[in-house]
């Protein structure tokens, strides 16, 4: 039987209450939302917090809205809610592409967006999605809110810019009218972690030239989940198969996968290149249709 070690439990009544508790207990306190990363780690004693702060009652952290040209996703939004959100799907189909392949429907009822990105697992799908989207994290501490671009959010496996006495409150994605986006993943079986995955967000200018592009890579060793070299190569060039192939090669060359039970390095490198091509192809096709999946 897997049972966590002893800990204290408090149910937070407000975000300010969370920050107060985190301040008081220091790094030995952990926030629990869906718990689908933290509770398994506590069972294995990979995490042994002294205090769990339950944020599930904090409706101020939930919800998906569009305000002032920004898609705002509350940290407590469940994966199932993001997948079911027409607002999210309308603006950024990449979010639905990714959510469809994250875990399984029952886990998605419970797991949260904030929990996933704060866990910072190197194979976490949403990490590559939000870096591709150039999203911004809003983090709250005792001194109020600060923002962190998602491209600066990840400090290494299981480490983020969120400090011990802070809480991620929402993710903001600037709307990109006309942009197309897509996410593709290879996993060993339904609901598994990615062997490799790629997300792309493409804005086209006159003549089908790439104006702006974001490429996120998951599970292939990029600490910031971003294929910057491939992005640089694409900007200003016509979005066609030749360009995609060159971008895929750049992504494959510059990623740093490690061999594990999900596959050897050369296979993962191959996937990084091929999935970058496929994500670019799908995102560009959607951009030609005005960004929608129709």
């Amino acid at each position: 039987m897997q049972v966590p070690a002893f800990f204290e439990y408090q149910r937070a009544t407000s975000v300010a209450h969370v920050v107060t508790l985190l301040e008081r207990f220091g790094p030995e306190a952990r926030i629990v939302a869906g718990g689908h990363s933290l509770i398994p780690m506590m069972k294995l004693r990979l995490a042994q917090p002294e205090l769990l702060v339950d944020v599930n009652d904090l409706h101020e952290l939930a919800g998906i809205t569009v305000e002032d040209g920004v898609l705002r996703i509350g940290a407590l939004t469940r994966h199932a809610e993001l997948l079911a959100s027409p607002l999210a799907g309308e603006h950024f189909p990449i979010l639905h592409d990714a959510e469809r392949v994250i875990a399984d429907p029952v886990v998605r009822n419970r797991g949260t967006i904030g929990g996933s990105v704060c866990q910072a697992d190197p194979s976490e799908d949403l990490s590559g999605v939000f870096t591709a989207l150039r999203a911004v994290a809003v983090v709250r501490g005792v001194d109020g809110d600060r923002t962190v671009p998602m491209r600066e959010f990840f400090h290494g496996p299981y480490e983020t810019a969120v400090r011990p006495a802070e809480i991620l409150v929402e993710l903001r994605v600037p709307l990109q009218p006309g942009a197309g986006s897509a996410y593709v993943k290879v996993d060993r079986r339904v609901g598994d972690w990615a062997v490799a995955a790629a997300g792309a967000v493409v804005s086209l200018g006159p003549g089908g030239v790439v104006e702006q592009v974001g490429i996120g890579l998951t599970a292939v060793g990029d600490a910031d989940f971003t294929a910057v070299e491939a992005e640089d190569l694409l900007r200003g060039r016509v979005a066609d198969e030749y360009t995609f192939a060159a971008a895929g090669e750049a992504a494959a060359t510059h990623c740093r996968p490690v061999a594990d039970q999900r596959g050897p390095v050369d296979y993962k490198r191959h996937l990084a290149g091929e999935l970058t091509v496929r994500a670019l192809r799908d995102a560009t096709a959607r951009a030609h249709r005005g960004g929608s999946t129709e």
Partner: peptide
């Protein structure tokens, strides 16, 4: 009202 895996809920 939502299915959850009770081995991963305290």
């Amino acid at each position: 009202g939502l299915p959850v895996k009770s081995c991963t809920v305290l």
